[in-house]
C-alpha cells in the first residue's frame, strides 16, 4: 500500500470535508461564537484579585448577563465592570469565593433572580454545582488548561462549526448533540423541552446579548418560554432559610472589610413574573433580603423608566432594552452615590 498516496487522499478529503461542514452550518445561519465556558469565566475571576476599590463586579444569573451591557456601563460610569454572573446559577458560591478567597473590597452588584438566588445550598443541585465548578476550575486550573483555552479562542471566533458549548443546548452542532436529536420510540418520559441558544457572547470579557432572532421570531421565543414553564413546574421549593443564612454571613464579612454590596433585580415579565409573584412573592423574598442585608438595592419595578421593558422570552432583556436598562441603572446608582465615576470624581 502506498502510504503517501493514502495520506494525500486523506488530507484533501479532510480539508474538503471540514470546509463543506463549515459552509453548511453557515448556510443554516450559524456564526462563530465565543463559548461562555469555565475557562472564559476564570479569566474574569482572576481579575478580581487585583481590582481597585472603585471597581464594580457583577454577580448573578443569566438576567445579569443579558441585562448588563459592559460597553454601556463603561460609557456611563467611566469604568468597565467585571462580569461574573453565570447562566442558571445561584450567585451565592461565587460571592462566597470572593469573600473567602480574595481581599477585594470594592463594589459587588449581586443580581437577584429569585428562583435561583433562593433555590438551594445543596452542593449537587445544578444552580449551585454549576457556579461552584467554575470557582473550583479557577482555583485548580492547570497551565495546560489555560493554554488550551487561549488556543481555542481564535478557532471559536472564526469557525461556526466550533459550536459545542459547556451548556448542553439542543442547537449545538457537535456530534453528541446531533445524535441526541435522533428520537426512537418513547421508552422514557419526555424531559425538558428543547432548549436553544438565544444569546451570544460579543466580547471576551463576557458581554452577553440576546440574538435578534429571539426578539423578532416569536415562535422561536416561545420555545424558550416553554423551557421556563417546564423549569417552573419541576423545580423544588425554594430554600429561603438556608440561602439567606449562607448569603448574610458572607455579606457581614464583606461589609466588615469595607466592601460595598448592592442588590439588583433585573426585569422579568409575563408568565415568568407571574410565576415568581406566586412562588416567591416580593415582600417575602426580595424585601426581606434587602432588609436583612441592609444594603442599597434596585428593583426594576420601583422605577418608572423600567415599567415598559418587556422580555421577549419572559425572562431576559433584548440587546436594545439591555443597553437602556444598563444606562438608566448606572445613572440611578451614580445619582444615589451607590457607585462613583472615577473620571468625574
Amino acid at each position: 500500500m502506498n502510504l503517501k498516496k493514502a495520506f494525500c487522499i486523506a488530507l484533501i478529503t479532510a480539508v474538503v470535508g471540514v470546509v463543506g461542514w463549515e459552509l453548511y452550518w453557515r448556510s443554516q445561519g450559524y456564526i462563530p461564537t465565543i463559548d461562555d465556558n469555565k475557562a472564559l469565566w476564570a479569566i474574569q475571576r482572576d481579575r478580581v484579585d487585583t481590582l481597585d476599590t472603585d471597581a464594580v463586579v457583577f454577580l448573578g444569573s443569566s438576567r445579569t448577563l443579558y441585562g448588563i451591557q459592559l460597553d454601556t456601563w463603561e460609557k456611563e460610569t467611566g469604568k468597565r465592570p467585571v462580569q461574573l454572573a453565570n447562566v442558571g446559577s445561584s450567585p451565592l458560591p461565587v460571592f462566597h469565593d470572593i469573600v473567602a478567597n480574595t481581599n477585594y473590597s470594592g463594589t459587588v452588584v449581586v443580581g437577584v433572580a429569585p428562583g435561583l438566588f433562593f433555590s438551594t445550598t445543596y452542593p449537587k443541585a445544578q444552580p449551585w454545582a454549576w457556579p461552584q465548578a467554575r470557582v473550583d476550575h479557577h482555583k485548580n486550573r492547570t497551565y495546560v488548561q489555560r493554554l488550551n483555552h487561549q488556543l481555542s479562542l481564535p478557532l471559536q471566533q472564526h469557525l461556526a462549526l466550533m459550536s459545542a458549548g459547556e451548556e448542553a443546548l439542543d442547537d449545538n452542532i457537535d456530534l453528541k448533540t446531533l445524535l441526541k436529536q435522533i428520537k426512537v420510540g418513547n421508552r422514557i418520559p419526555e424531559g425538558m423541552p428543547p432548549f436553544y441558544k438565544f444569546g451570544r457572547m460579543t466580547t471576551l470579557d463576557r458581554n452577553l446579548q440576546m440574538t435578534d432572532r429571539t426578539v423578532t421570531d416569536t415562535a422561536f421565543a416561545h420555545t424558550i418560554t416553554k423551557v421556563w414553564e417546564f423549569i417552573g413546574k419541576t423545580s423544588p421549593a425554594p430554600d429561603k432559610a438556608a440561602t439567606m443564612a449562607f448569603f448574610l454571613k458572607d455579606v457581614k464579612a464583606f461589609k466588615a472589610r469595607g466592601g460595598h454590596l448592592i442588590l439588583m433585580r433585573c426585569p422579568s415579565t409575563y408568565g415568568v413574573r407571574a410565576g415568581e409573584n406566586f412562588m416567591l412573592p416580593r415582600q417575602d423574598y426580595w424585601d426581606d433580603l434587602v432588609e436583612q442585608s441592609d444594603v442599597m438595592a434596585y428593583h426594576f419595578e420601583d422605577y418608572p423608566q423600567f415599567k415598559d421593558l418587556k422580555c421577549p422570552e419572559w425572562s431576559h432583556l433584548s440587546a436594545e432594552d439591555a443597553h437602556f436598562f444598563t444606562a438608566e441603572l448606572a445613572k440611578l446608582m451614580l445619582a444615589d452615590k451607590a457607585i462613583i465615576n472615577p473620571q468625574t470624581n
Partner: peptide
C-alpha cells in the same frame, strides 16, 4: 490489513475519522 487495502480506502477512511473528530469537538 492495511497492506492489503487500496490507498483510496485508507485515505477516505482516515479522512472520515478526522472529520468525526472535528465534528465531535471533544472537550479535552
Amino acid at each position: 490489513l492495511s497492506k492489503k487495502a487500496s490507498p483510496w480506502v485508507i485515505g477516505v477512511f482516515w479522512a472520515v475519522l478526522f472529520l468525526l473528530i472535528v465534528i465531535a469537538q471533544g472537550s479535552g
